[in-house]
Amino acid sequence: MISDAVPRRISRAAVEPLRVQSIYRSVINITTADGLLTVAGEGGGLPNGIVADLGPDWRAIGLHPGMVADASDAKLRVPDAGLEIEFAGASRWSPRLAAPAELVDVAAARWTRRAAATRAVARARASAGGFGPLLREDVPYGRDRYVDVARPALAALIVALEIGDRRRAAEAATRLIGLGSGLTPSGDDVLVGIEAALHALARPTAGFVALATGGVEARTTALAATLLRHAAAGEFAERLHVLLATLMGSDDEAIPAAIDRAVAWGATSGTDCLLGVLIGLDVAAGVHRALD
């Protein structure tokens, strides 16, 4: 499966050679002039990515950081490792998240009805790492330096979004970018989650992150910077599409399982993204939010 944003990235990157940036058990990141291109073996579609099956452990297929790669509309290759991924048989998937206008009010009303119950489920199941303490609401000041910095910045962001002030929201977002642990720092994951919810409910503040992403590559990890730029453009991972569809869908009983799946993404990225999604939905639906 291939994101329809990938050919755009490849075509923009034609002027500069692609290089392997990092290799994990089932993920390869490739640098392009327009951010990272990610090949992943699991986890569903990524806005910057391709889903492929390259075997049980991709660290053992001869790839090394810095290897030159090349790509076209038809394939991605790392010649020195003998790797070639054909796009011809891949299904195309759109990472763009937008709710049909006629469903937005219904979805917002559903969220308003179930917000408190969903938060309670999320509180009970959230990771203790990353910004999980903010979701779990067990966050006395002084326990975690990153959470201490994040909390007032998030509070400022919520207020800014509530009053529809994109400039102020971007200022608060700037304080979150690159903040926290992980390859996608917690602050970036939260911002992606918030953007996803705002786009899903077609709020005018959606895209506020774009005002905060100038020079973002110097302020956060390459992967997080890429995902933030996609988020600002309304493009998100498939799992976020699924999560939002469930949270705003008609089936209350599907929610606990969706929360479980969400918090299982990565070590803390799932919890951090979920925190952002819940904040974003509350703000978008006008639900009173108490992250003080």
Partner: peptide, 17 residues
Amino acid sequence: AGLVMATPANREVLAAA
């Protein structure tokens, strides 16, 4: 001790600590 990616935001937290 602190173990984080050296983003500017994280470096500020490290500096404060």
